[in-house]
Design a protein around this nucleic acid. Structure first.
Length: 754
DNA sequence: GGGGGCTATGGGGGG
DNA sequence: CATAGCCCCC
């Protein structure tokens, strides 16, 4: 038997070696999920399956890359021939080959979110609708969700339920916008992120030239990571590929319902529950041992997630010992939070000898990174921020990429609009509007009508020059590699010159970013390792554009430097660090104010919190701030409810969060409370005891008749104790509150024996 | 008709 | 705090 199997526990081994038929692996955090997936692939290859017959779908490029690395580590170079990638990237690759079968050019453009929004903005304007009512964010969500549920525009308009929802939300023309949006994208030869899934589904369903059978035959073994994050559409595609007459249904999905955090983009744990019906003979394996974290962390996570109603029963456990308790940090302001976290990091580094790369700060929203950056910089701690404004979203980068996109696909309307007058070449708004209107009326793209729109002599001349420019780019791209083409474009578009003229600090930064793109392209051309092994070593501009379309910030490996990681909780999924800081734990922030309406939403936020805390191997620190500068004004929020959901057992000395008791007393004057968006249900807790002088006694030492001190209730006398050995409940009369009797669970409460 | 500067508005998570 | 839309000047 292969030696790699020795590294697995019994359940893991079964999950790896049960290669035939459908398999569901329920994998708790840190349970060796990736190990199971990679070894399963290695095992398939070792037992004679060809690497290219294996399809592995993940949600991030990083996960796919890591998996490939680990597979090649076990089986050698041939591991690179496995089809491993994100849903979006693998499907895009298939669509490049098959696009003509569903009426798209193989050079189709991938619209990112901002492209999509821009299309929607122009449609709303065209239809003369109120842009406030028809806000593009909402529209895009609605359209995205329609696609994710396989509802094309026609079906949408025919759906009484959806239509009535739109009428109720005062957006009766939404279906019209959806229809126009779809037509507009198709005309431009563009697919948005959802189309990469949706069009692949269309391809498989309509099955031109029996293309479905082709892929059913090709992918003999299918593996899906993070299955809990798949939506209805993704699941439908998987079924098309794996479930058919005479199919062996060799599909293995790995997931954890407790870590489902993408409901907002249509993910549904129904998919996990549906599996049993759809895949007859499904074998289920549960990985419940956590190899990542110490017990306080695992148990706290269990306590938290336990509150969610609907979930697959499992008991995550660890044998790594109790470990360190969880630390809670309270700050008066967001800025102080930044300082305290930085202080704590310094302390941790020196006391526990942690390197930067073993530490991560996780937040709910990317906007929170700023204060932490500020203090880390001040303390000379190296860090790297992931997500947020990604490199490819910077203006100068987008502008240049737009030129490259336009070169490959001149019908790419968004790219054209971006650069038609950048750098300035005398094509103003009025001219652009004319072309756009003409194109709309003719049902063509702006590029297609450039020469037929009646314009002033001056404008016509500018347009002709622009058109010739792009055509020259096309010519250049056809006969040279991506770097030479890009360099040609950079020069002749006069972007280089324009950027060089800007001598401001920001301008220099922009030039630097611009150069970084060129460097990236050079690397792409020179370095074969960057190429996907499954594609030919195609160094064309088209190939480059394709390779970066689905890139995210997360994919750029930092150059092995020792840096602290700052990222959103979403981005941290699948990662682990020795020390984790989960910050901004306040109501309306985490849980997000936008997800507090329903139990379902709160449950998803809770799963997110669960994901956050289970990233930690040894040290977990949670923090919140009393006040926070947000949207230009001060906001005051209470500590997150999630803090209360961890029993004090797992928290460092005497920090019951419930009463918002602080370990360290606030420094500086208390800021005057602002009336307004600050709703507090109860008054601030009054302490009868100075927290600084309070020393809680071990709960086991509490006996009947003792006089004890409680932070909130003051001095009291223990009247009786009942309950079991492990959950003793004391009845105590507190004289400071009129001898009121309280029943106190000793396991949780902090009492000091007098 | 094009270009530049100003005000108003909106602001989650990610492929 | 960033971007879009608006207004005014050339």
């Amino acid at each position: 038997m292969a030696t790699y199997l020795d590294e697995l526990n019994d359940v893991q081994k079964k999950a790896v070696t049960t290669t035939e038929g459908p398999v569901l692996v329920i994998a708790g955090p840190g349970s060796g999920k990736t190990r199971v997936l990679t070894y399963r692939i290695a095992h398939l290859i070792e037992t004679g399956v060809a690497p290219w017959e294996i399809l592995t779908l993940t949600f991030t490029n990083k996960a796919a890359r890591e998996m490939k690395e680990r597979i090649t580590h076990v089986v050698g170079d041939k591991g690179n021939r496995v089809w491993a990638g994100t849903f979006h990237s693998i499907f895009a690759r298939i669509l490049r080959v098959e696009a003509d079968k569903i009426g798209y050019p193989s050079s189709f453009t991938i619209y990112d979110t901002s492209d999509s929004k821009s299309v929607l903005t122009s449609i709303v304007k065209e239809l003369n609708l109120d842009p406030k009512v028809y806000a593009v964010n909402g529209l895009l969500k609605r359209i995205s969700s329609a696609k994710s549920n396989i509802i094309p525009p026609k079906a949408y308009a025919a759906d009484a339920n959806l239509m009535s929802q739109d009428r109720m939300s005062k957006r009766p023309y939404l279906h019209k916008i959806y229809e126009k949006y779809t037509a507009r994208c198709r005309r431009a030869g563009a697919m948005d992120f959802d189309d990469l899934l949706f069009q692949l589904y269309v391809l498989l369903r309509t099955n031109p030239d029996n293309v479905r059978e082709k892929y059913q035959r090709r992918f003999k073994y299918i593996l899906v990571d993070e299955f809990q994050d798949t939506n209805f559409l993704q699941y439908a595609i998987l079924k098309k590929l794996a479930v058919y007459e005479g199919s062996p249904m060799n599909i293995c999905v790995v997931g954890d319902d407790a870590q489902s955090i993408y409901a907002f983009r249509g993910a549904t744990i129904d998919n996990i529950l549906e599996l049993e019906n759809d895949l007859k003979g499904l074998q289920v394996f549960k990985l419940e041992q956590n190899y990542r974290s110490t017990e306080h962390i695992v148990q706290a996570a269990n306590e938290v997630i336990q509150r969610n109603k609907r979930q697959i029963q499992k008991k995550i456990w660890s044998d790594k010992g109790a470990g360190h308790k969880i630390k809670v940090i309270k700050a008066v302001s967001d800025s102080e939070e930044g300082k305290r976290i930085a202080d704590s990091i310094l302390e941790q580094k020196s006391r526990h000898h942690l390197s930067n790369s073993e530490i991560a700060i996780l937040y709910r929203t990317n906007a929170q990174s700023r204060v932490f950056e500020e203090y880390l910089r001040r303390y000379n701690l190296l860090y790297r921020v992931y997500g947020g404004l990604s490199f490819y979203q910077r203006k100068e980068v987008k502008d240049f990429i737009a030129y490259l996109r336009l070169t490959i696909n001149p019908h790419d309307e968004e790219a054209l609009k971006r650069v038609i007058n950048y750098p300035k070449r005398g094509i103003g708004k009025a001219t652009i509007d004319k072309i756009s209107a003409h194109a709309g009326a003719a049902g063509k793209t702006m590029w297609a009508v450039l020469t037929e729109v009646p314009l002033s002599a001056r404008a016509s001349k500018s347009i002709a020059i622009f058109r010739k420019l792009i055509l020259s780019f096309k010519e250049q791209a056809a006969m040279s590699n991506a770097f030479d083409a890009a360099h040609f474009i950079a020069r002749h578009s006069t972007m280089i010159k324009t950027l060089d003229e800007d001598k401001t600090v920001e301008g220099l930064g922009r030039k630097e970013n611009f150069n970084a793109v060129l460097d990236g392209i050079k690397e792409f051309v020179e370095n074969d390792e960057l190429l996907d092994e499954a594609t030919l070593p195609d160094k064309s501009l088209a190939s480059y554009i394709q390779s970066i379309a689905l890139h995210t910030d997360l994919d750029n490996e930092s150059e092995n430097t020792d840096v602290i990681t700052l990222m959103s909780v979403h981005a941290a999924k699948g990662l682990e660090f020795k020390s984790i800081y989960v910050v901004g734990l306040e109501e309306k922030l985490f849980p997000s104010s936008m997800s507090m309406e329903t139990t379902e939403q709160i449950d998803e936020e809770r799963r997110l919190f669960y994901v956050a805390i289970t990233r930690a191997k040894e040290y977990l620190t949670l923090s919140f701030a009393n006040s926070r500068y947000r949207f230009g004004k001060m906001a005051y929020n209470e500590p997150s409810r999630f803090l209360d959901e961890i029993s004090p057992l797992h928290l460092e000395q005497g920090v019951p969060v419930k009463g918002k008791i602080v370990k360290e007393v606030n420094t500086g004057p208390q800021r005057a409370r602002v009336v307004g968006n600050f709703k507090r249900k109860s008054a601030a807790p009054t302490f009868r005891v100075d927290p600084a002088n309070f020393k809680p006694s071990p709960s086991s030492s509490i006996q009947v008749g003792m006089n004890v001190l409680h932070l909130k209730f003051g001095e009291g006398k223990v009247l009786s104790i009942d309950g079991g050995e492990s959950d003793r409940i004391a009845t105590i009369a507190f004289k400071d509150i009129g001898n009121e009797q309280k029943r106190i669970v000793l396991r949780f409460a902090k009492l000091q024996v007098l």
